[in-house]
Amino acid sequence: MTTLAQRHDGPGTATVPGPRRRLTGLVVALATLLILLVLSVMIGSTAIAPSVVWDALSNPSADIDQFAIRDYRLPRTVVGLVVGAALGVAGALIQALTRNPLADPGIFGVQAGASFAVTVAVGLLGVRGIGGYMWFAFAGALIVTLMVLALGSTRQGQSPVVMVLAGVCVSAVLGGAGSALELTNPDAFDAMRSWNAGSIVGRPLDLVWPILPFLVVALVLALAVSGSLNAMALGDDLAAAQGVRLTRTRVLAIIALTLLAGGATAIAGPIGFVGLMVPHVARWIAGPHQSWIFAYSVLLAPILLLASDILGRVLMRPSEIPVGVVTAFVGAPVLVALVRRKNASAL
């Protein structure tokens, strides 16, 4: 346990934090998330008085500003919450699964698959509008991950390393085929350049609801396998000795991961860094215990996403910066800082 803690954590966290610190942290995170949820409804590219915001929620009328709250800010807040939580847990899952703290949910080809499917939908099938893209993206993400899973299966079961390699290879090929399609089809190119930025704006809730059950199922699955993943962090042999069924755990974890990352990408387009970074922060605070990491990731990822989105609304008024762009700018420096830390070479 200690060796693992040292491997994954920064200095000073070699000892596993006590349950008290974990719980306090969780409460603080929850409070922060609640504050951000409120801020996300209050702050936008237009100035709307808090009283109007309150009225919009408690005393709905056909006032034009109230529509702005109910139709735009509230849905994007909900979408941010859902997508963030999904990406965070997906990141925690893949990092536990591959035992690689730098693994990103996109690594199994989820984003490449979603992106390629949308390109095909726009370029060859003439699909238009975010509602249509969503299901193609979801299907693409699922199919490609299944492909990667099939390619990555060895006689001994699913090896994370082989799966990552298979993911890299499939992503590259699909990326190339996608850009060939885009470059010969101006309409597809046009549609893809906004989809590729990753954003939580303009996703009406009635389009998002159907994807939600998949995410909930995946979250439950993730929690269910967290104990086994914990044991597997010590090594396959040790875990097997403790009675963990390796293949079953991996398959369940991969299904959960695919649904989470695929669903999030289907809704918001490719958003980087959230899934990579949040589990790290979770691990710093909570120590190497998967259930805690999942719990923290569920809270911390929407915090990052909503904070980035709010930032994106106010930085370039009256225009907005897509949240996918902001998370990269917020996230990448953190990654660099992470690597420059003292024990980073042990990552």
């Binding site: 590219s45 237009t46 034009i64 529509f67 702005a68 139709d71 735009y72 609304r313 225009s319």
Partner: peptide
């Protein structure tokens, strides 16, 4: 060139 979020539709009044 500036894309405006829908909540700014109100500003068209």
């Amino acid at each position: 060139w500036t894309s405006l979020p829908y909540e700014q539709i109100a500003g068209l009044s």
